[in-house]
Design a protein around this nucleic acid. Structure first.
Lengths: 93, 93
DNA sequence: TGCTATTGTCAGCGATCGCTGACATATGTT
DNA sequence: AACATATGTCAGCGATCGCTGACAATAGCA
């Protein structure tokens, strides 16, 4: 599953927690956080702190893979648009 | 690249930002954040706020994929350890 | 229906966020 | 060296974090 919003993350966490048959209290204790925090996260709290989120994922054996999004493959490989533009930097404005 | 710590994330972000030839100021403006924030993130700030991080990744076209970590493949497929343990719940302790 | 486990809600608190904006330190180019 | 660009540092500020702990609401089961 791809994670683009805090809500996505909340869903991933909640699903996996249930999969592992952990209740909020047990889960919270495992990652060293309050149960309240778990509730907020699963609800999609946008301002949660990064390290806690990462610890939560780790505790659930969820791996985060960060990769470049390859939406369009219109251009042949080996062509660096930026480089071309830079070379022709007549009006950089 | 796998992201397990704030430092990992900082590295991913910094590398990609340079790949796109953005300086901190331009990058910060693009995601609606201060340049100071960018510096902290790239340094691996553990308490950064989630939504800003996600926006940063999005702005860099970095996709976050969350999947269950499959470290050991010792057991044949179809065997659910949890279920077995549950079934034999003589001493659940 | 009762009983239990689980989940959701809240106020008040200390701690820390992210911002600004000016200055210091690289880094690179001529 | 001189200059321009990029990156790193900091103090003070308002805003919000995550915690506690007790209670309310919901779900599951007999």
């Amino acid at each position: 599953m791809f994670v683009r919003t805090p809500a996505d993350l909340g869903a991933v966490i909640r699903d996996r927690r249930k999969q592992l048959k952990l209740d909020q209290a047990a889960f919270a204790k495992r990652i060293g956080v309050s149960r309240y925090w778990v509730i907020l996260i699963e609800r999609g709290h946008p301002r949660a702190e990064l390290s806690l989120v990462l610890r939560a994922l780790d505790a659930l054996d969820i791996q985060l893979d960060a990769g470049v999004r390859e939406t369009d493959r219109r251009r042949p490989r080996g062509v660096d648009i930026d480089a071309i533009v830079a070379k022709a930097k007549g009006g950089k404005s």
